Structures are given as structure tokens and as C-alpha cells.
Simulated assay, not measured.
Amino acid sequence: MKNFLPAIFRPKAPRAPLKFVRGRFDAASTNPDNARHWSSAEFLSADAEASSDVRRILRTRARYEINNNSYARGIVLTLANDSVGTGPRLQLLSDDEPLNRSVETDFHN
């Protein structure tokens, strides 16, 4: 034990000074390559930006894409089917299993 205690209290070697990493956000910089991309960016909120004219244009373009783009149609149908499904389904959980099946079958037909 005598040899162990001095090792615990031995002074540590001095550390090298910390180096600071200079970082930046690419999206915060405007340069000739992205100036055109950011030219339409505004400080308005989504609610303030979505006037009735803007909503009408977006609705028209979305309908056009759904009608003329099979990928867009598939995405919309998938979202609708996963969110809404095919309609309500009944599942009874009473103690009488034959009654449960009978009522569920009558409901579905």
C-alpha cells in the first residue's frame, strides 16, 4: 500500500494549451455560388407568407403534380391510406367470443 499512495498524489504532466476550432454555418454565408438561391428568402412566418393567393397557387401546382406525376400520386395515396385507412373497423372485446365474431361480421357486411 505504501507504493500505491504516492502514485495517486503524483502531480500530473502539464497539458498542452487548448486549441479552439473555428466553425461556421455554410447556410449563413452568402457568396456568388448561393446568392441566387437565397435571394427569395424572407423573414416572414409561414402564416404571414401563406396569403390566399399563395395558397391558391400552391394548391393548383400540387394538384397538377398529383395528376401528372405518378410518384407524387403514389406518395399522396400512401399517406392517405396510412392516415385514414379504408374506414372504421369494429373490434369487440367482451367475454363472449362467438358474440364478438357475430357482431363484427354483421358490422363489416
Rank of each mutant, 00 (worst) to 15 (best):
N109Q: 15
T105R: 14
R63M: 09
S29T: 08
L77T: 08
T86E: 09
V76R: 00
F25K: 07
N34L: 03
L79Q: 02
N100A: 05
D33G: 02
R89Q: 06
F20I: 15
N67G: 06
A13Y: 07
N100W: 06
E65K: 14
A28K: 02
G85K: 09
L79N: 06
A62Q: 10
N68H: 15
D82N: 08
E49H: 09
N109A: 15
A27F: 11
F20G: 10
A7F: 13
S94C: 02
R15V: 15
A7D: 10
L93R: 12
Y71E: 15
L93Y: 07
P88K: 11
W38D: 10
F25L: 09
V103L: 08
Q91I: 13
N31S: 08
R63Y: 06
P11D: 12
P17A: 13
P98I: 03
E42R: 05
A41N: 07
P14I: 01
A16G: 07
G74P: 01
K2G: 01
F20C: 10
L44R: 11
A80P: 00
V84D: 00
S83N: 03
E104T: 13
N69W: 02
S70D: 12
F4C: 08
L18Q: 12
E97A: 12
G74D: 07
P98M: 02
A28D: 11
S40T: 05
S39F: 04
P98S: 08
D47K: 07
A72I: 05
D53N: 11
Y71G: 09
D47N: 05
G87Y: 12
P6S: 10
P6G: 04
L90A: 06
E42A: 07
A41Q: 09
E97M: 06
D26W: 06
D96H: 10
G74Q: 10
R59D: 13
R59E: 11
A50K: 00
F4S: 04
S94R: 01
F20S: 12
N31P: 00
F107M: 13
N81P: 00
K12A: 12
P17R: 07
K19A: 15
A50S: 08
S45C: 01
A41W: 04
M1D: 09
S51L: 04
L93H: 12
G23D: 10
S94G: 14
L99T: 11
E49A: 13
G85P: 02
I75E: 04
D95W: 00
A48Q: 11
R73K: 14
A13G: 10
A72G: 02
L77F: 07
T105K: 14
S52Y: 09
N3K: 09
R36V: 05
I66P: 00
P14C: 01
S83Y: 06
L18S: 07
V84H: 03
T78D: 05
E97P: 03
R61F: 05
F25I: 03
A28S: 10
G74F: 04
R63W: 05
Y64P: 02
L93T: 14
V21P: 00
V84W: 05
E49C: 00
R15C: 11
R56H: 12
N109L: 15
N3A: 08
D96T: 03
K12T: 14
S29Y: 03
T30C: 04
A72M: 11
F43R: 04
